[in-house]
Structure formats: C-alpha cells, structure tokens
C-alpha cells in the first residue's frame, strides 16, 4: 500500500509538467494583447506597452516564457500579476476561502445526496422516489445562475435569514447559501447515482444471501447495500472536490466571494499566464490527491479491490 501511494505521488511530477505546459499554451493562445488591454478603450502608448511586455516576459517566444516560469517555480517564485502582486500571495488568500466553500458544498451534497438517494432507492417507484427525482431534475434543468440569484434574493434580500454576500466576512454563516448553490447540481448527481446503485444492489446475490441469513434489514441496508453502492458515488465525490473548487466562478460572482473562481476568471480574461497556470496547477494537485484518496477508499469499501 505504501509503495502504491508513493508511486502515485511520484506521478505528480509528469502531471505537473504536462498540466503547466498545456495550460500555459492555452493562455498563450488566448486572443488579444493583454498589455494593450490595460489601457482600456484608450489603448496604451506603444513605447509603454513594449516595456511592460518585456517586464512580464511577454515579448519572448512561448517556450522561453514557459521555461522562465518553471525556473521561477523552483525557487517558489510563481510570478507576479499585472497589478504587481506576487501570485503566491494571491494564492494564499484565495485558496483557503474556496477550499472552505468547496468542503461545505461537498459535505452538503454528500450527506443530503446519499441520504435522499438511499431512501429513494429503497422505495423505488414510490412517492418519495418520484419527488426526489423531480427535485433533482429541476436542479439540473435550471441554470446555476438562476438558482443562485433567486435563492439570494429570497433568502438574503427578502427574508434576510442569511447574509446576501460574503465579501471579507468568510464564515460558516455567510458561506452556507453559496455552498448549497454550488453543490446543488452535484447533489442531483449524487442522489441519482446513489439511488441507482442502491436499487441495483438490493437485487444482488450478496444481499439475498445476507437477507436469507436472517440479518436485520437495517444491517443489510447499512452494511451490505450502502457500502457496495457507494463506489460510483465516492468516485464522483472525489472528482467533484476539484471541480467545485474550479467551477465556483458563477457562484463566487453572485455571492461576491473572494476565491479561486473569481480570481481565475479575471486572470483568464486578462490573459495573465502566471496567475492562471499557478492556480490551475494547484487544482490539478487537488484532483490527484482527492483521486488517490478515492482509490484508497475503494479498497476500504470493496475488499475485492487490492493495490500492490
């Protein structure tokens, strides 16, 4: 097991190189001159623009830019933003916020999704099941910006139960509504995956055996059905942590959260390669670790899966 984990961690090196190269290339391919855009509608004098380009290495060929960026990373220098801030400082500010938000969203979707999915699966075809499916459908079919907007307006502005926006006040209370909005679509996924797996496993041989052995229904459900049903769900959840962190652009915008999504979106729009690449690279690492964790969980959930 330890060797397996070690090997997986070692694999991060090529992934890191591949991801940074790919993302750097994509930012490089973004349309427009980021320096000229600093001048707004007025544009920038070419003399000033040329100097700024040199300062940010934007006047060099792609591979030179990329290698310079890599060289910087070796000394923990992730480059600077156009506003002259160290990218590493920016990351130190935004990641804790987004991480907290994502964990809350993940907890919400996992707890509620698995619970509702389990009950729906056990009562397949019944009223509860039908209602749960309908709710999940609405969540999927209505775009997140509409859900977020409506929830913010009703719960925040009209009822005043929760703060409308987050801003600098990053607490459980302020993040609650954004976390629910962020996790809403994934909640629908988790619900449906759990329900399907549970319904399927209910008819599996081992459940029949367990029931035939005379085990109580709750034990059959909790130990045998649920445990076996969780594999696809856990896979999904593991991958979702990273997706939530990167995918919070719309949610962070609606609730004004100073996190990764907002920063990434702005950096992409402004063509700020070091910021984009650094943020995304951290996200890749989050994916890898989360997926490693999921693979470990497989072994725990299903004794037949072994790693060497």
């Amino acid at each position: 097991m330890a060797w397996y984990v070690g090997r997986r961690l070692l694999q991060m090196v090529p992934v890191f190189l591949g991801a940074t190269l790919l993302i750097y290339a994509m930012v490089f391919a973004l349309p427009g001159d980021p320096i000229q855009a600093l001048g707004g509608d007025r544009g920038l004098n070419e003399a000033v623009a040329a100097q700024l380009r040199a300062e940010y290495n934007l006047d060099k060929p792609f591979f030179v830019q990329y290698l310079l960026y890599l060289k910087g990373i070796l000394t923990l220098d992730f480059g600077t933003t156009f506003s002259g801030r160290e990218v590493i400082d920016v990351m130190g500010e935004v990641f804790p916020v987004t991480f907290q938000l994502s964990i809350m969203a993940l907890t919400f979707e996992a707890v509620l999704g698995i619970t509702v999915g389990l009950i729906a699966g056990l009562r397949k075809g019944k009223l509860f099941d039908a209602t749960a499916l309908l709710v999940s459908l609405v969540v999927i079919a209505v775009p997140i910006f509409v859900i977020g907007f409506v929830l913010q307006f009703v719960v925040g502005v009209k009822l005043q139960w929760l703060p409308v926006t987050v801003g600098g006040d990053v607490t459980f209370r302020t993040l609650l509504m954004p976390a629910i909005v962020l996790g809403a679509v994934s909640f629908a996924y988790v619900l449906r995956l759990t329900r399907t797996s549970v319904a399927e496993n209910l008819t599996a041989d081992f459940v029949r055996t367990a029931t035939a052995k005379g085990l109580s229904r709750s034990r059959v459900v909790n130990v045998h059905v649920l445990r076996n049903s969780l594999i696809p769900v856990v896979t999904y959840l593991g991958a979702d942590l990273g997706a939530l962190m990167a995918g919070a652009i719309v949610t962070e915008g609606i609730f004004n959260i100073p996190g990764v999504g907002n920063t990434l979106y702005r950096a992409i729009q402004q063509g700020q390669a070091p910021t984009v690449v650094s943020l995304v690279t951290v996200l890749v690492v989050v994916y890898i670790v989360a997926n490693l964790f999921v693979d470990m969980l497989y072994a725990l959930l299903d004794p037949r899966i072994r790693y060497a």
């Binding site: 991801a19 994509m26 990273g242 990434l264 994916y287 997926n291």
Partner: peptide, 24 residues
C-alpha cells in the same frame, strides 16, 4: 496510471479557459 493522470490534467482545465481558446 497514464490514462488517469491525463484525465486529471483535463479535469483541471477551467471550462472558461477552454471555451475562450476554442471559441477563438
């Protein structure tokens, strides 16, 4: 190992970035 890591990389590409690049 190889396929999963490629998956990881693609997973991490922000939709907005991919969209702007491809759209362009």
């Amino acid at each position: 190992s190889v396929l999963s890591r490629i998956t990881d990389i693609f997973f991490a590409i922000p939709l907005v970035l991919a969209a702007i690049v491809v759209m362009q």
